[in-house]
């Protein structure tokens, strides 16, 4: 099994074959992810007659009519801005509440722990559209209706389970000994957390942030019910997409995907900060 038994020249051959397979595998995975995205953008950037025609082209003709329609659409920049505000607020709320809970779940054994965990899971397991009616009634009565904060609270509810469970798994992967070592060196619990644990958990926190952002960004139903003047981009575009003509569907779909991709690109460094403990 081990490499040692294989004589020199053959071993090199095996390695080369292995490297080739490895490379081919990567290429295949990359294609698998990118080709559908490519099709989305081809359709978004093609003339309407090409989008509905057959056979399809595999290269966009850069007819920007459909995309331009969106940029000239009344209130689109305002909606974009609202979406960003809601998403950022969702991120802050869900991590601010979720990370402490995740830490508690990973570091302590206490009565009610399982209960809390199931509670968090339930939150994500229940279809939001059914909750929207009582929530909307509550929001109208309390004045949270049609505010960025109100919608962010609902989105934070959706993102919280992600934040709690992901930070829990990350904190669980960080040995307690590291923290204990810091305590013996005179750090308080808080100091130890901030100086030792937090840097290691950064990828996980970044991951929860990405999820929170993306969840908020793509959520339609609550956004459509709870915002009127302060519509988010998704509520603005997405709910009219499934009844719009095909070329606009694709242009709108692409318009929604793009900002999310830019956001992931911007935070990728933190998301994949794998120099944590591994390179200690």
């Amino acid at each position: 099994m081990s490499d040692v038994t294989i004589p020199g020249p053959r071993r090199e051959e095996v390695n080369r074959a292995g490297r080739f397979l490895f490379g081919a595998g990567i290429a295949l995975l990359v294609l698998w992810v990118l080709v559908p995205i490519w099709f989305l953008f081809v359709n978004a950037l093609s003339a309407p007659s090409e989008v509905t025609g057959f056979p399809k082209r595999f290269w966009p003709s850069f007819d920007l009519a459909s995309v331009r329609f969106f940029w000239n659409f009344q209130g689109v920049t305002n909606a974009l801005w609202n979406s960003i505000k809601v998403a950022v607020l969702t991120m802050i709320l869900s991590i601010g509440m979720g990370a402490p809970a995740g830490y508690a779940l990973s570091r302590f054994d206490f009565p009610g722990k399982e209960f809390f965990r199931v509670l968090v899971i339930m939150t994500r397991a229940f279809p939001l559209p059914l909750l929207a009616l009582p929530l909307a009634v509550m929001f109208i009565r309390t004045g949270l209706d049609d505010t960025v904060l109100g919608l962010a609270l609902v989105h934070a509810m959706l993102a919280l389970p992600f934040a709690v469970l992901i930070t829990f798994s990350l904190f669980s992967g960080i040995p307690v000994e590291l923290e204990e070592a810091a305590w013996t060196l005179g750090c308080t619990r808080l100091q130890a957390f901030v100086k030792v644990v937090l840097p290691l958990a950064l990828p996980g926190i970044a991951a929860s942030a990405v999820f929170a952002f993306v969840i908020s960004w793509n959520e339609v139903f609550a956004a459509a019910v709870l915002t009127i003047e302060n519509r988010t981009l998704t509520a603005f575009l997405l709910q009219s997409l499934n009844v719009s003509p095909l070329p606009l569907k694709f242009a709108g779909g692409a318009a929604l995907v793009l900002p999310a991709l830019i956001f992931i690109f911007a935070v990728r460094k933190y998301l994949f900060a794998m120099w944590g403990i591994a390179n200690r």
């Binding site: 329609f69 659409f73 009219s240 719009s244 606009l248």
Partner: peptide, 8 residues
């Protein structure tokens, strides 16, 4: 009037 062009 939900299709986006109709809305406009």
């Amino acid at each position: 009037a939900r299709p986006i062009e109709e809305t406009q």
